[in-house]
Design a protein around this nucleic acid. Structure first.
Length: 602
RNA sequence: GCCAAAGUAGCUCAAUGGUAGAGCAGCUGUUUUGUAAACAGCAGGUUGUGGGUCCGAUUCCCACCUUUGGCUCCA
C-alpha cells in the first residue's frame, strides 16, 4: 500500500465522524435495496467529508429520486436500529451472499487470504428493516444517532475501477452529528465554489471558451494574457539566470520522430491524428523531448558542454478525453515550461538538486509553500509491468535510488507512489491541491535512461571516447494554463501586484480632476505599470466598487485636495485607506512591489 | 469515452403548450459626486443546434453539441 493511501486511511480512522458515516452508508444501501427490488449493494466506504455507495441497479437513479431515497433513509434512522458487528465463517458468508456476485468475489478473496470475515447486522429479523452486510466496521451502535445527512450527487463508477468492467451507480452523500454541522459543511462548499478558477475567470474576464473554436481550447482575454505573459517572462528570466538555454522548436513534427522516441505506441490514443503533407505524415506535438534531442544531435557534443539545458515554453497538443477537460486545469492545447537537461550520469544527482532549487524558489515567488500547498511525490516504476515500463530492473533501481537520495539529503518530505513513473524512468512530482482539495501534478522532474539510448545521444568524454548522457526532463512552473488555474484559486482573483491584470485604478472624483489624473497615469505608464483612469461619468463610489470587484490592488482617488497638494489618496483592495501621499512616493512603492514580485501591497 | 444532470440577453436569474421578463453590464441624456452601486430613457433573445408530436413548442419527445459532478485517464 502506498504511503499516500495509508495517510488517507489514517486521516479517516482519526475522523470521529467516520463510524457515523460508515453506518449512514449502510442505511443508504438499505434504502436503495428496499426502493429498487433487484438492486445489489456492491461496496461503499466513508471518504473525507462523507461517503459513497456503489450499486448494481437496473433503474436509472437521478437527482429527482434523492427525495424518496432520503425519506426512506430517514425511516430507517427513525426506527433506531441496532448495529452489531460479528464474525462469521467463510461457509456462512458464502451462504449469506450467494445472490450477490460482487460480495461473493470479496468473500472468496478474504477466504483465500485466510482473513477473518466480519459482517454487520442492522436491526433484526423482527424489525421492518433488516440487513446483514459484509463489513469490517467501525460503526455507531444505533442508526438513530445519525442526526443529519444529505445525498449530494449520483455518478457512474466502474466495478473495481476498471474501464472494461460494468459501470455501477455510485451515490455520494454525507452525514453529520448535527444539522448545524451539516449546514456548516454545505455553506463551506458554496464558499469553495466561489473560488473556482472557472467562475473567477469569467467574472474577472480572464479567459473564455468558444464552441466554434473547440472544447479544451481556452481563449485568453487581454487581462488573462497579462498573467500568462508575466508568468512566461518570469520563468524564462529565472531559467536563463540559472544557465538554461531557451530554444524554439516546431509545434508539429513527423510521426516517425515519436516512433523513434518510443512515445508513439504508448500515447497514440492521446495524440491528435496525423496529417499528410506531401510524402510526410505529421502530428501536432504532444511533448517536446524528441525535438530537443534532435537539436542536441545537430552537432557533436563534448563533455565540456554538459550540462546542456534546453528550455522552451512549448505549445503542446494532447487529445484528452472529453470528460476529462476542466477549465484551465485540463486542456487540449497548453504551454509547458519545459526543459531537457543533458548531463553525465555522475552529474544527475546534482542537476536534480538544482532543478528542485529552481522549483522551490519559483513556487515561493508564486506564493506556494512547501508542505502546505504542495508535496513531493516520488513516482516509481513497476518491475512487473514491462509493457508499461522499460524493462531494465537494474537501471530502474539505480535511477530511483538517485531520486530518493536527492530528496532525503535535502530533508524534503515526500511519499512514494508505485507505478506512477514515466515509461522511460522514475520522477519526482510536485503535487498541488486544487480548490476542491483534489491533488494534481503541477510540476515534474524525471530521470530518463531510456530515450538517450533510443536516439543514440552521445558526447565525447575526456578520454576521447563516446559516452551517453542522462536526460533530466523537468518542468519548472508546469503548464502555464494549469499554474494560472492554481493561482486564480489560491488568491481568489486577488493576485500579487506583479500578476494583477490591472495594477492601479485612478479615480478622479469629478470631471475637473481628469486632467491631473491623466498626468498621474502617465507617470505610472513610464514605469510600465498597468494603470488606467476611470473617466466614466459615474460617482466615485461606483468607480471604487468597480475597481474593488476587479481586485485592483491600488485605487488612487483624486479630488480638489489632491490636485491642490500634488498628492493622490491611496486605497488598497484590502479596504485600507492610506490617505494622501505624494505621487512620486506612490509610483516608487508600486514599482518596487511590482519589480520585486512582492506578495504584499505596501 | 462511460454514468448522472444542466443549457433562457454579455453576466446572475424569472416565466409559460398560445413565439419571453427583471437586476447588473452596455448605449444616450441629466447629474460632477470624498472611499463598495446617482437618476431617467433606449437597446439587447429564432429560449444551445437539428428533428419529431401538436392547430400552435421556448415548454413535451428524440438525436447531437457544450458545460458541470463523478468514473477511467493524465507522457
Amino acid at each position: 500500500m502506498s504511503e499516500q493511501k495509508q495517510k488517507v486511511i489514517e486521516k479517516l480512522i482519526n475522523d470521529p465522524l467516520m463510524p457515523l458515516r460508515h453506518s449512514a452508508e449502510h442505511v443508504l444501501h438499505m434504502s436503495i435495496e428496499s426502493l429498487y427490488p433487484g438492486a445489489k449493494k456492491v461496496m461503499g466506504p466513508p471518504i473525507e467529508n462523507g461517503f459513497y455507495g456503489d450499486f448494481d441497479v437496473e433503474a436509472k437513479i437521478s437527482q429527482e429520486d434523492f427525495e424518496k431515497i432520503e425519506a426512506r433513509m430517514q425511516e430507517i434512522i427513525n426506527a433506531k436500529l441496532s448495529v452489531i458487528l460479528k464474525e462469521v465463517s467463510a461457509e456462512d458468508a458464502k451462504q449469506l451472499f450467494k445472490d450477490n456476485q460482487y460480495k461473493m468475489e470479496f468473500v472468496n478473496e478474504f477466504a483465500g487470504q485466510g482473513k477473518n470475515i466480519t459482517v454487520c447486522e442492522i436491526g433484526d429479523s423482527t424489525s421492518k428493516f433488516h440487513d446483514v452486510d459484509l463489513c469490517a466496521g467501525p460503526h455507531i451502535n444505533n442508526t438513530g444517532d445519525i442526526k443529519a445527512f444529505k445525498i449530494l450527487n449520483v455518478a457512474g463508477a466502474y466495478w473495481r475501477g476498471d474501464e472494461k468492467n460494468k459501470m455501477l451507480t455510485r451515490i455520494y452523500a454525507t452525514a453529520f452529528d448535527s444539522k448545524e454541522n451539516l449546514q456548516k459543511y454545505l455553506d463551506l462548499q458554496e464558499e469553495i465554489k466561489k473560488r473556482d478558477h472557472r467562475k473567477i475567470g469569467k467574472d474577472m474576464d480572464l479567459f473564455a471558451f468558444s464552441d466554434l473554436v473547440g472544447k479544451g481550447l481556452p481563449l485568453f482575454t487581454e487581462r488573462g494574457t497579462t498573467i500568462y505573459r508575466e508568468l512566461s517572462r518570469f520563468v524564462v528570466d529565472e531559467e536563463i539566470k540559472r544557465g538554461y538555454k531557451h530554444v524554439h522548436t516546431p509545434n508539429v513534427a513527423k510521426t516517425d520522430l515519436y516512433r523513434k522516441s518510443g512515445h508513439y505506441p504508448y500515447y497514440k490514443e492521446t495524440m491528435y491524428p496525423p496529417m499528410q503533407i506531401d510524402e510526410d505524415e505529421l502530428i501536432l506535438r504532444p511533448m517536446t523531448c524528441p525535438h530537443h534531442f534532435a537539436l542536441y544531435m545537430s552537432k557533436p557534443r563534448s563533455y565540456k558542454e554538459l550540462p546542456i539545458r534546453y528550455a522552451e515554453l512549448a505549445q503542446l497538443y494532447r487529445y484528452e478525453k472529453s470528460g476529462e477537460l476542466t477549465g484551465l486545469m485540463r486542456v487540449r492545447e497548453f504551454c509547458l515550461a519545459d526543459s531537457h537537461n543533458f548531463v553525465r550520469k555522475e552529474q544527475a544527482a546534482e542537476e536534480i538538486g538544482l532543478v528542485l532549487d529552481l522549483i522551490e524558489s519559483s513556487t515561493g515567488v508564486l506564493g506556494f509553500k512547501k508542505g502546505e500547498d504542495y508535496r513531493y511525490r516520488l513516482s516509481l516504476g513497476d518491475r512487473k509491468n514491462t509493457t508499461k515500463f522499460y524493462d531494465s530492473p537494474s537501471e530502474w533501481d539505480y535511477a530511483e535510488n538517485v531520486l530518493r537520495t536527492v530528496l532525503t539529503q535535502r530533508n524534503a518530505p515526500f511519499y512514494e507512489a508505485e507505478g506512477e513513473a514515466a515509461f522511460y524512468g522514475p520522477k519526482i512530482d510536485i503535487q498541488l491541491d486544487n480548490v476542491t482539495g483534489k491533488e494534481e501534478t503541477a510540476f515534474t522532474v524525471q530521470y530518463d535512461f531510456v530515450l538517450p539510448k533510443r536516439f543514440e545521444l552521445e558526447y565525447v568524454n575526456e578520454k576521447n571516447e563516446m559516452d551517453q548522457p542522462v536526460v533530466i526532463h523537468r518542468s519548472s512552473i508546469g503548464a502555464i494554463e494549469r499554474t494560472m488555474a492554481f493561482m486564480i484559486e489560491k488568491y481568489a482573483g486577488a493576485f500579487p501586484v506583479w500578476l494583477s491584470p490591472q495594477q492601479v485604478a485612478i479615480i478622479p472624483i469629478g470631471e475637473k480632476h481628469l486632467e491631473y489624473a491623466q498626468k498621474v497615469e502617465q507617470l505610472f505608464r513610464e514605469k510600465n505599470i498597468r494603470v488606467s483612469v476611470d473617466s466614466r461619468n459615474e460617482p466615485m463610489n461606483a468607480k471604487i466598487r468597480n475597481a474593488q470587484t476587479l481586485k485592483v490592488p491600488y485605487m488612487l482617488i483624486i479630488g480638489d485636495r489632491e490636485v491642490e497638494n500634488g498628492t493622490v489618496s491611496v486605497r488598497l483592495r484590502t479596504e485600507e485607506n492610506l490617505g494622501a501621499k505624494p505621487i512620486a512616493e506612490v509610483v516608487a512603492k508600486v514599482s518596487e512591489m511590482y519589480l520585486t514580485k512582492s506578495l504584499y501591497l505596501w
